[in-house]
């Protein structure tokens, strides 16, 4: 009887809203600090706190928002604004396609159109790292706290601009990159093909930064060329093992994403 009960409770253990909320905590904390930097920068450059907060609430991107804000402040055209967002955020399309391969049967239709709003580098990274299929309730839980972290961090940064000493800002700018490193390095350590492909992407990215003419290419375009180019070369030279049921392999283990923060 006991055996049977515990067996059944294990079977119904599916990733739901609560697990999603739980997995979103570290992302939310990270987002708070990163968007704090965004709100602060916005205030320094002449935006009101509610303007940067509105941008954060409707966009939920990092690089795209920074670029969009700069273009708006410089009085750029709407076409330029639209193109910049398209190019810088195009990586989300790739992540959306990747994630669409991992969702369960109920996560389709209108739910995809609503919850698709929450696809960001980190939310995607954590979702893609789950061994189980992604349910709509899990994904909704996962994006909830990061969304508020992002919005309120921006507000705090915008309001506290005059209080925070300039020197603190020096540490803020690097936080986002630290988070990216924490996603890539454990995977590169585990899979040397990922390491090689990432080093290739870095070499490309270095060329687009330092080589004359190439460094005229906008940041958004160069990220797509570098990221896509390196991934295609990776697929050609180190294709992953064929999958029988058409399911994507686990992109990363939850343990490696959460790491030491997981009790």
């Amino acid at each position: 009887m006991w055996r049977r009960l515990s067996y059944e409770s294990e079977r119904v253990m599916k990733l739901g809203f609560k697990q999603g909320l739980n997995h979103g905590v570290p992302i939310a904390i990270g987002y708070f600090f990163v968007s704090f930097a965004f709100g602060l920068t916005g205030s320094v450059e002449g935006m009101d706190w509610w303007q940067t907060m509105l941008i954060s609430m409707t966009n939920l991107t990092s690089a795209g928002q920074f670029a969009g804000m700069k273009i708006m402040l410089a009085g750029g055209s709407l076409v330029e604004l639209a193109l910049s967002q398209l190019v810088i955020n195009l990586r989300y399309s790739l992540m959306a396609i990747s994630l669409s391969q991992k969702t369960d049967a109920k996560f389709r239709g209108i739910y995809r159109w609503i919850l698709g709003f929450g696809i960001t580098d980190e939310i995607y990274g954590v979702a893609a790292g789950q061994k189980e299929e992604i349910s709509r309730s899990y994904f909704f839980g996962l994006m909830t706290l990061p969304y508020f972290g992002w919005a309120f961090g921006t507000m705090a940064g915008g309001l506290l601009m005059r209080v925070v000493p300039n020197v603190v800002l020096q540490g803020m700018g690097i936080a986002l990159y630290g988070m990216f490193i924490a996603i890539v390095v454990p995977k590169a350590k585990e899979d040397h093909h990922v390491l090689k492909v990432c080093l290739l992407a870095i070499v490309f990215s270095g060329m687009f930064t330092y080589v004359p003419i190439l460094n005229k290419v906008s940041v958004g375009v160069s990220i797509i060329i570098c990221g896509l180019g390196a991934a295609i070369l990776g697929a050609v030279f180190f294709p992953i093992a064929p999958i029988d049921d058409g399911e994507l392999p686990t992109v990363e283990d939850r343990e490696t994403v959460m790491g030491g923060d997981q009790a």
Partner: peptide, 20 residues
């Protein structure tokens, strides 16, 4: 599938270096 497997890491790497 292989491209989709590598892409999050290559994009994050390209965004991080050398911008960091």
């Amino acid at each position: 599938c292989s491209v989709l497997y590598y892409i999050p890491y290559t994009v994050l790497s390209a965004m991080t270096f050398p911008a960091i």
